[in-house]
Design a protein around this nucleic acid. Structure first.
Lengths: 191, 191
DNA sequence: CTGATTTTTGACCTCAAGTTCAAGAATATG
DNA sequence: CATATTCTTGAACTTGAGGTCAAAAATCAG
């Protein structure tokens, strides 16, 4: 009973995520969130408790989406190298095409709140580890399929690739397409 | 003539740099800067005009220091791989040992202001390009010295290394020593 | 010492962030 | 319909950020 919500919480979290992604945690005010979601400030507080809690939900959503996307790219048919290349290029191209270069919410959060906010730090670490896991599995499968050399240490390569991804998403803020694509090719030469 | 300054501008910029490095641009208030430098808010404004201008000087100082440090590490005797390894390990270890994981001011700035603040973005891009240049030269020297294979594309490798460095300094926010050192070793296997 | 000049100090101002709250609106139950 | 319950709205509050300014303090030229 009671008056029904006039918005769908999931949709609001998704829109809040976009706002945080574009402007950062500190850079997104309650007023901005109200505008981005179309929900009154008061309602937001009523529904989510605080800006920080809303951000937490947005981060979770981002993690789930990112994980699905990574899986989708890596599971397409092709060799490990082809699929990983496609994935990296997708990330970079998406970033470059966007009207505003916002990079990766996880990386942004790592730098903005890393160390200072234990929960956010943990959330980012989990996302990262999840991606490392998926990359490791894809490389191991490549070894079984015969398209990745057996002497490659899948986990080490996956860690290096993860690190490369993080680097790319920061460099996308300051450098252009050719440079980023060159980095992708060099990184792929490692296995 | 006139009343003499009671502080050394360079020292103040250095202390402001530390504060910005630790807490970010937005996260460092004029009050924080006054406390960090020991100079009154009013005096800071009188001397530097605005928070943004002070930050600009701090960024420049950081760039000069970083450049000198990179040169110093790469110029020590040893093979290219040895010196680059020493440099990367220094960066990572410094970060890990610090009481607060603050990463790299340039990378932090790229993510906090990249895109939104043209001057800051430019400054970061210049620093990055400078490091790429130094790494390229060191690899080329390695090729002349015979400790780097001649078929290596020095510039591409340098770009990849730069990207790895950026990645490391973000990952240092969420991951621990063994992981980071593992990444360094994998990255060095590429040339 | 008197100005002229520059710096320091601390009070003060404005604005927005982040949050709270009281009042009203919408629904379900009985 | 009366009531309980939940949601919405907009005003209001508190705090601190970023910056300004007038007055006092320190120096040097004459």
């Amino acid at each position: 009973m009671g008056r029904p919500k006039e918005f769908q919480p999931d949709a609001v979290v998704a829109q809040a995520m976009e706002a945080f992604w574009t402007s950062g945690y500190a850079g997104t005010s309650p007023a901005d969130l109200a505008e981005a979601t179309g929900v009154g400030k008061g309602s937001l507080y009523h529904a989510f408790g605080s800006k920080r809690e809303l951000f937490g939900k947005a981060l979770d959503l981002y993690g789930r989406g990112g994980s699905e996307l990574t899986e989708a790219y890596l599971d397409e048919p092709g060799t490990a190298k082809e699929r990983i290349r496609a994935y990296l290029e997708f990330l970079v191209d998406t970033d470059l095409d966007a009207p505003v270069r916002r990079g990766c919410l996880a990386a942004n959060t790592a730098l903005e709140l890393g160390g200072r906010d234990p929960e956010a730090t943990e959330a980012v670490r989990r996302m990262t580890d999840r991606t490392i896991e998926l990359l490791t599995r894809r490389l191991e499968r490549g070894q079984r399929d015969g398209d990745v050399a057996p002497e490659v240490d899948a986990r080490s390569q996956a860690l290096l690739l993860m690190n490369t991804i993080v680097g790319l998403r920061v460099m996308a803020r300051t450098h252009d397409g050719p440079v980023l694509h060159g980095i992708i090719e060099s990184a792929l030469a490692g296995f």
